[in-house]
């Protein structure tokens, strides 16, 4: 566990020079929430943006030939991979927290009502979207690298557009959807299970890719 933490910290130090860009990425969606006067839209935009920065540790590694450093550190490959996921999740959690604090403040200042249920819904939705984007992105980056695999950078954009298109078409009368939407506990449990499951599969895939990779 300590090695996973160390690996996550190493990733943190890789993206440190990009701290300003990441801060900007976290703050920009506030404007989007204000323009649309909608917390869910603002939060999904924030998660889309922050998911686009998950390629930074990969690109810094590739640019500096740091695979060799990862190859000589006294850490197992699965620990390095899990550490990277931990770092990405921490980045996502930070962006979600910033969004859930800053966006309601701005919306309230503009006269919009933001309830606890709105906040909870946005939090669950944001977490799910971020997980959905990154579980595909990270194995893609491990497999192809950040240069060859730059198409994975756009997964969040595609996901964001798909969310915008599909959300209005959700069948409101569907009893399953209604049951899930009507029960916050069920919604949280379902999303948590989905997120955990998706990350478990994604981490396993990334570890397999990394273990078969010759540096």
């Amino acid at each position: 566990m300590r090695n996973i933490w160390k690996a996550a910290k190493l990733d943190g130090s890789l993206v440190k020079p990009y701290a300003r860009v990441i801060c900007f990425t976290m703050l920009l969606p506030i404007a989007f929430a204000a323009i649309n006067r909608s917390l869910p839209t603002g939060v999904s935009f924030a998660m889309c943006f922050i998911a686009m920065t998950t390629g930074y540790p990969f690109s810094v590694t590739e640019k500096n030939g740091m695979e060799r450093l990862y190859g000589i550190l006294p850490v197992r490959k699965w620990e390095l991979v899990t550490g990277r996921y931990l770092f990405v999740l921490a980045l996502g959690a930070l962006a979600l927290t910033v969004s859930l604090i800053a966006q309601p403040l701005v919306l309230r200042a503009m006269g919009e009502t933001v309830t606890a249920a709105d906040l909870g819904g946005a939090a669950v939705g944001g977490l799910f979207l971020f997980a959905l984007y990154t579980v595909f992105q990270i194995p893609g980056y491990y497999k192809y690298g950040s240069i060859k695999g730059r198409v994975f950078l756009y997964i969040p954009v595609a996901g964001f557009l798909a969310t915008l298109l599909l959300l209005p078409k959700m069948p409101a009368g569907n009893p399953l959807v209604a049951a899930i939407a009507g029960s916050p506990v069920l919604l949280v449990a379902l999303v948590t299970a989905l997120v955990v499951g998706m990350y478990a599969v994604s981490i396993c895939c990334s570890i397999r890719i990394m273990q078969s990779k010759e540096l």
Binding site: K6, S13, K16, K63, G65, I72
Partner: peptide, 29 residues
């Protein structure tokens, strides 16, 4: 690997790191 030191023909640290940051990043391992 904990007992092994490795030097390649080119640097393997992030070029944007300061020397002090290299220590911060590597020493924990």
């Amino acid at each position: 690997k904990a007992a092994l030191g490795v030097v390649f023909d080119t640097n393997y640290f992030s070029e944007d790191w300061q020397v002090a940051q290299v220590e911060q990043a590597i020493s924990v391992f």
